[in-house]
Design a protein around this nucleic acid. Sequence first.
DNA 1: GGAAAATACTTGACATATCAATTAATGATC
DNA 2: GATCATTAATTGATATGTCAAGTATTTTCC
Lengths: 159, 159
Amino acid sequence: MSRVSGRLATELKQTRPFRSRRQEGTLGLLRTADVVRRKISEVVEPHGLTLQQYNVLRILRGAGPDGLPTLEIASRMIEASPGITRLLDRLEEKRLVARVRCPKDRRRVLCTATPEALRLLASLDAPVHAADDGALRMLTDRQTEALIALLDAIRSGPS
Amino acid sequence: MSRVSGRLATELKQTRPFRSRRQEGTLGLLRTADVVRRKISEVVEPHGLTLQQYNVLRILRGAGPDGLPTLEIASRMIEASPGITRLLDRLEEKRLVARVRCPKDRRRVLCTATPEALRLLASLDAPVHAADDGALRMLTDRQTEALIALLDAIRSGPS
DNA sequence: GGAAAATACTTGACATATCAATTAATGATC
DNA sequence: GATCATTAATTGATATGTCAAGTATTTTCC
């Protein structure tokens, strides 16, 4: 049932076995994501952006000139970000995001990517895609499909 | 080649297609890990520990009474942590970690888990395992094996 | 055995994350 | 149409993460 001899156990120099294969899978998931995350961060950080900031700009580019309200951005992020307001503060300081209060609903603040942000994003498209794609370059097409299906299943919950 | 219609694209309300299935897999990996990470955090944080702190204590428990030098702990962590010194500072303040300079090599600082930490860990074993295991409870045994193999392949690099 | 390189941390400065409490505006209800 | 609940976002306090530079100790190697 349990094992210390997996690849992950070796990486972490574990002295105790995993209590189940599912536990091994969960810890492998967290570790693998951390490795991949750092690799992709290396592409955007030299340009003065964290991954989260980059993700916000991508979302705003996709939303177009109408922009999106603050919390709507947060809900679309790959990694949840309760600090969305201050994240936007920093992007606004760097003149990469513009914010205006929505006239229809004055509680909302509509955020848009500035032309400067769009230029920056354009210059990052190729290297970021290369990194995203490259992170899984050792998988065959079938393996990639299998991975996507497994991850979808994990996020979709017990069902 | 590209698609906007996947489950992940729906979750993130994407307006643009992924540029490749590998990119979709990479972003799915990051998002899934974030979801799972938060779920497991919920188990340990009510006990005053972050996931990283919990991970350190687990490593020290596994190392036994001899303890481990600071950077050796860092190298065994599931998620890399350049702030290991201060992470240990906080655990020491909480009296969960004891540190002594190694007499054989005075550059090193040997860290051990205190009896209090061992008691805390013992009380967390069952709920944490339930969360680790539960995160993948929707996968069959075969799917779990497949996931572990795919994650191993990703971490092992281009090969 | 003594200078230079490598190792093992530590520290300072700063950025970012997290949670709870707060403000402002809108919606719902009677 | 005033009250109450809800929603959207901000703020304050604090914890944590990150990078570069610094210190102490050991190792290398001539």
